[in-house]
Structures are given as C-alpha cells and as structure tokens.
C-alpha cells in the first residue's frame, strides 16, 4: 500500500481515513463499538446492582422498573451482568487477537523473508495447524486445562494465527523483491532490522483488517465455547455463558430476558466490528477506487 504512487500528495493513511469516514456502515460500527467499550470500562460505576448478589426470592423475575432486564436463574440482575459481560467478551476477543497477531506476524514475516528451508518448515507447521478441526482441539485443550477465561484466550489465539501467517507471508513475498528493500539490503542492514523496520510496517494494512475481524471471531468463539460449558466459569458473567443458561427449554420459551439480551449483544458487537473491519479493508485496499 505504501508503495503505490500517490498523486494527490496526501499520505496513504490520510487517504484511507477519508475513505473510511465516508463509509456509513463502518462509522456506525465504530460508534457502537466505542459505546460498548466505554460501557465495559465504566461497568462498576454505571451498573445499578452488585454483579453477583443473589436474591433467592426473585429468581427469573421478569423486567420491572427496578430491574430493567429482569433477574436470571440465580436471582441476579440481568442488566448488570450484561454490562459486565461486555468486559469478558470484548477482552477475550482482543487478547486472543493480540496473541494470534504477534505469532502470526513474526512467523509470517520470517517465513516470507527467509525463504527456502525456514519458509518450508514454518509453512508445514502452518499446514498442520490449519487442518486441525477447531472445536476438537478446543474441547481437548479445555479438557486438559479446565475451563477458564485465560485458557479461552489462549485457545483462540493459538488456533487463529495460521491464516494471518499466510497473509503476512504473501505480502512479504511480494515486497521482498522491490527496489526499496533491495536498497536496504544493499546498504547492509541486517535481516532483523529489515523485517521489523521496513517490511512489517508495510504489511500493516492486512494486519489491521485481520486483527479487527479477529476480535469479532474471538467474541463468537467465546460465545460458542462458553455455551458448551468450556469457557468462562461462574460466577463471572460473559455473554456466552449467559446464553448457555438458556439451555432449559422453559427458559427459552418463557424467560426471554435471560438469553435474548446477551445473544443480541453478541450480534450487535460482532456486527459493528465487522462493519468497521470491512470498511477498513475497503479503505486500505489500493485496488478499489472510489
């Protein structure tokens, strides 16, 4: 991206930002995400009740003016837990993506730049990882390590880095032979400097897009694994484990306030991130001319 000739004299980043701002869906997504992140951070301040406080007399109570989203199966305020749940779901998404990005970028850059044997080995490892059926590994690892938030982040991160490696490697391969890099090599810069200071910054575009979408993926994975009982443990609320509490059929049909809000939140959050990520992809893609 940085290597395309720029006619208007603006930096590529400024062009991208302008493009992004014009994308209504992406801006909407960004707006929603900001609100959600703010809610998550401010949770202790804005929530009306204590997160884990149980009131045995109010189990499954429907929404009232005091408890706007009613009470859950243990007599706890749903709205409070919903807001705290944002913390978990969003942080799982972010941390797992960071793990995947760090591993993926380093391996991808090294593979692309070094070529031959190192490349082959790394790509073989990628092949092995990519054909692991995701849920099988996730369930096995959850079986070994036990359900917990940290394990969830690890599992998610460790299983998502391969595709990023491929993307980065492809970018690096195409950059390797251009003049810019040849010049750096001629100047005698060592491989590590070249990779970290020159190549990686130029592959930022797909990384940013991937990372954004990866957060969405992470949130969906948290929902799925917690639903299976392999993720966030009680009494910590996450949107995923709030959804799993609705596995009882009566809850599904009658106590809608227990499960529809978290399901809806997952949908809205992931949707917003996808809007934004898609917008970023469009904005940073040199091929689409608006």
């Amino acid at each position: 991206m940085s290597l395309m000739t720029v006619e208007s004299g603006l930096s590529p980043w400024k062009i991208a930002t302008a493009k992004l701002k014009r994308n209504k869906l992406a801006m909407f997504g960004l707006f929603v995400i900001s609100i959600l992140v703010a809610l998550a951070i401010l949770a202790p301040v804005i929530t009306p009740y204590e997160r884990d406080r149980i009131d045995m007399f109010k189990i499954y109570e429907s929404p009232t003016s005091e408890h706007k989203l009613g009470m859950d199966e243990m007599g706890r305020d749903v709205l409070t837990r919903l807001i705290y749940g944002a913390r978990i779901s969003i942080s799982v998404g972010i941390v797992s993506t960071i793990i995947a990005v760090v591993i993926g970028v380093i391996l991808g850059a090294v593979a692309g730049y070094s070529g031959s044997i190192v490349d082959s080995i790394i790509m073989r490892i990628v092949d092995v990882f990519m054909c692991f059926p995701f849920f099988l590994i996730a369930i096995v690892i959850a079986g070994i390590l036990g359900p917990s938030i940290i394990n969830l982040m690890l599992i998610s991160g460790l299983l998502n880095w391969p595709s990023l490696t491929r993307i980065v490697r492809a970018e690096v391969l195409s950059l390797k032979h251009c003049e810019y890099i040849e010049a750096a090599k001629a100047l005698g810069l060592n491989a590590r400097k070249i990779i970290f200071k020159h190549i990686i910054p130029n592959t930022l575009a797909p990384i940013i897009v991937y990372a954004t979408l990866g957060i969405a993926r992470g949130i969906l994975i948290e929902a799925g694994l917690s639903f299976l009982g392999l993720g966030v443990e009680q009494p910590v609320p996450s949107w995923g484990n709030m959804l799993s509490a609705a596995q009882n059929f009566t809850t599904l049909t009658t106590y809608w306030w227990v499960w529809i809000p978290p399901g809806f939140m997952v949908l809205v959050t992931v949707l917003s991130i996808n809007f934004l990520g898609d917008g970023l992809r469009d904005a940073l893609d040199p091929k689409i001319i608006q």
Binding site: D52, I54, M74, G229, Q234, P235
Partner: peptide, 16 residues
C-alpha cells in the same frame, strides 16, 4: 463438576 444444574447453582449460592 459440570452437568448438574442445581449443583452448579448451589456452588454459586454457597459462595455468596
């Protein structure tokens, strides 16, 4: 352990 809904709720209640 997982699998018994009432017992899982007991755990949370007893913690409280």
């Amino acid at each position: 352990s997982k699998g018994n809904v009432v017992r899982e709720k007991c755990a949370v209640l007893f913690q409280q």
